[in-house]
Every structure is written in structure tokens, then in C-alpha cells.
Nucleic acid binder design. Structure first.
Lengths: 218, 218
DNA sequence: ACAAAAGTGTTGTCAGTACACCCATGG
DNA sequence: CCATGGGTGTACTGACAACACTTTTGT
């Protein structure tokens, strides 16, 4: 029966992470350039093999940290899907890939020290290693679905304090469509997930905007 | 870097399958009694370690076939989630579990030869091995969500030909709530996923019911 | 003729959408 | 005083929910 459990040749298990951020008013993903075969020099999602004594969420965090030079504590992440159909996905060993997506407030990205990410718009990706293009498309679909169902994930992409217009911009960038200002505000406010701060954002030659933050902190 | 890829001690990867079926007007899951440690003799979901040269969907099918004696070709299945946080989940080796759920028309279950499943109502489960109780709860949640969004998965639990009342019963059993007959029919028919057969189901002392089948076959 | 399930339409309610004007500020 | 984005309310529309009676059959 199963008692040969120690005998099976085990597939490798990797975690790949799609890190989304809003940069230059675009939804971008963090990619790294591969430094080894297969797909040497191609861009790819940061990934890492799951160590024997490593919970898979830790693997995701380590991938972000080691491959991208990002502090994983400022990233919200969730499991997306596990790809394990294609035996030849990785040419070295048979690999099963558990894919996470992550959301980061781009202000928290340290563009100096050791940051290895290149940020590409999800709508303008280079040809990536493995099946990473398809994986990103899938992740984007899921993210859009969550946003459309008003699951409160967008604030993971926002700074702590923000105006309603900034939040709306984030929604619009993800969904890739314009939203109505009044309807957006009505809907987002009636969910009671925001608290209005007693501050205004004074910026530009116009009426100052009220600042909000999410009630449930990260 | 990663070049020690052949050196890592690899976690085991298993696939577990939650097989749902409607029996005795109840939503039930197929469980097997474990024949080995850990959790010897406890009931559990059918599962199997992923072999090196085995796509994970094949692993799911093999689990159904070998552990449950079910022909996997008559089962619709989809990936649910991958559990890989708990290092001590399986006491033998560190195991990551990719969980699938499956739907079967219970008329296709062969209760004779070699069928090892015991069927338990999802609302009345025994204490199961590993974290399988929690996994089933999670699967049920996802199934309900799909049904509520009118994703057409219910017909995987139905025979080829069925009446609208029978289909509605399936919805009601899964959701565990009564639905309005007229609203249900309106909603299901306007989706154009059913074709009305030129047959009636003559049964009982009452007006015969029209038979339907799904347009998109399995 | 009766019991039992099949089949069928209308109305009210609520959420979502569309839409236009005044407000506060800096220069 | 003007340009700029911030901020606000109402009316329409379409989807969903509630609800009751007639039809067809076997006995």
C-alpha cells in the first residue's frame, strides 16, 4: 500500500509569487531576471523551492525577500492555485508550483538596497520563463473578481492614509475602467471599512481632500 | 543559489479528494477507513502521494480509483486549495496536501465490487483523520458559493436526464435551504444551459414532469 | 372526484447605475 | 477671479423575492 511512502521519488515543490503594486498609475508586477538555467536571463516570477521544514507561506515570504529584496512583512499575500499538471514545466526536475499573489503599497518598496525587482505593467509583459505569463493573467482575473465583489483587498495596495479619489484610482487601475465618483463613494462608505481622519490632504490648487484609513489594520 | 536543487530534502506531496454525492436526499461525502498509521482505522478522505511522473489530476483520479474503487471518469473534479502550513500534519513525513473536490452522480456509484467508500452526510461527520473535517467544511463553503453564483456545477451531481424539481432539490440540499419554485425555474431556464427533452417522467399519481438535460455535456 | 406534484405571472422592493452642479483652495 | 479637483443627491432601471392558483395524472 502506502507504506513505501519513503521510497517514492518525490517531485519538487516550489512557491511562486506574483507581487502586484501600483506604480506610475499602472498595475505592475515585480519580476526578476533569472540567473540560472532553465530560462537563463529571462524574466520570471520570484520563486523558491519549499524546504522540508518550511511552511509554504514562509517559502513565499523567503522568495520575496531573497529573490526580490522585499521585506515580506509589508506584503499581503494569498494562495492562488497550484500548478502540477505539466511534468516538463521545469527541465531540471519535475516541479509542482504553488502560486501566491501578493499586494504591496508601492511606497514601501525600497528601490535602493538590493532590490532586484523590475516592475512591468500587467498589460505589457515581456515573454516570461515557464508558464508565468499565463499565471499572471490568471492572478489578474482573480484580483479583478475580488475587487468587483468589493472584497476589501485594494487597501493593501494603498498607503495608510489616502483620499477617496486615490482609492478610486486604484480600483480603476485594477479593473481597467472608469468608475462613477458618487456611486463609488456611496458604495465604499456604506461598508464601514473606512474611518475618516480629522485631516485634509492639502495639495494642488483646489479644495483639500479628506483623508481616510482602513479600520481593520493589516 | 538554487543550484542545490537536487540536494534539498523534499516534502511529500499528496492529493486528497472530497467526493460529494447526493444520497438519500442528503449531501454526502465519500470517506474511507484508514488501513495504516497514522490515524489507523479512522475515517479519512481518499488521498495519494503524488508520484514523480504523475500529473496531479491523475493523482486525484488514482486516489478515487484505488482508495475508493470509483471510476474517476464519471467524476467531475476541481482543485480547491493546497494545505502546506502545518509541518506535523502527517507524522511520518512533512506533507503538503493538494485538495480537490469531486462531484458524482450517485447513480453511477457501483456499490458492489470493491467500493470502499462509506458515505456520510456533510452535516454529520465522524471525527476524521488529519485536518479533514476542516477541509470538508471549506469545500462545502466553496461549493455553496458556486451554486449561489449560479455556476453550473450542480448538474455534475445529476443523472443525464432530470426534472426541474429534481434539479431544484439538488440545489436545496446543497444550500440547505428551501428555494421558490417559480423563481428557481425562471432563473435556471434563462441561462440557456438546459434543453427540454421531448419526454415526460411518468411517476406517481400526478401530472408528469418534463425531462431536461444539460446542453453542455460532461 | 380526489390526492399529489407539475407548471405558470405579477407585483413590490432594493441595489445599482446614470447624471450635473456647488465648494474650497492657491495663484 | 479663475482653474482645479473635491464633494454631494436624485431619479431610473433591472434583478430578485414574495406569493396562489390551474393542470395533469392514477386510483
Amino acid at each position: 500500500m502506502n507504506t513505501d511512502i519513503f521510497e517514492f521519488k518525490r517531485p519538487g515543490v516550489a512557491v511562486d509569487v506574483i507581487l502586484f503594486g501600483i506604480l506610475d498609475k499602472n498595475l505592475k508586477v515585480g519580476l526578476i531576471q533569472r540567473e540560472e538555467e532553465p530560462h537563463l536571463n529571462k524574466y520570471a516570477l520570484p520563486g523558491r523551492f519549499v524546504r522540508y521544514e518550511e511552511p509554504i507561506e514562509d517559502t513565499a515570504k523567503m522568495a520575496l525577500k531573497l529573490k526580490g529584496g522585499i521585506n515580506p512583512e509589508v506584503v499581503f499575500s494569498e494562495q492562488l492555485y497550484t500548478f502540477g499538471q505539466d511534468l516538463k514545466r521545469d527541465t531540471r526536475i519535475r516541479t509542482i508550483s504553488i502560486v501566491y499573489y501578493g499586494l504591496i503599497d508601492s511606497q514601501k518598496i525600497d528601490f535602493q538596497s538590493g532590490n532586484k525587482f523590475k516592475w512591468y505593467s500587467v498589460y505589457d509583459l515581456p515573454q516570461l520563463a515557464f508558464d508565468h505569463n499565463a499565471i499572471i493573467r490568471y492572478a489578474l482575473e482573480r484580483l479583478c473578481k475580488k475587487i468587483k465583489e468589493w472584497e476589501d483587498v485594494a487597501f493593501q495596495l494603498m498607503p495608510k492614509e489616502f483620499t477617496l479619489t486615490e482609492l478610486q484610482n486604484t480600483y480603476e487601475i485594477i479593473l481597467n475602467e472608469k468608475l462613477d465618483k458618487r456611486n463609488f463613494r456611496k458604495k465604499i462608505l456604506e461598508q464601514n471599512i473606512l474611518k475618516e481622519l480629522k485631516k485634509k490632504k492639502m495639495e494642488g490648487v483646489h479644495r483639500p481632500a479628506g483623508l481616510f484609513s482602513f479600520i481593520r489594520q493589516r
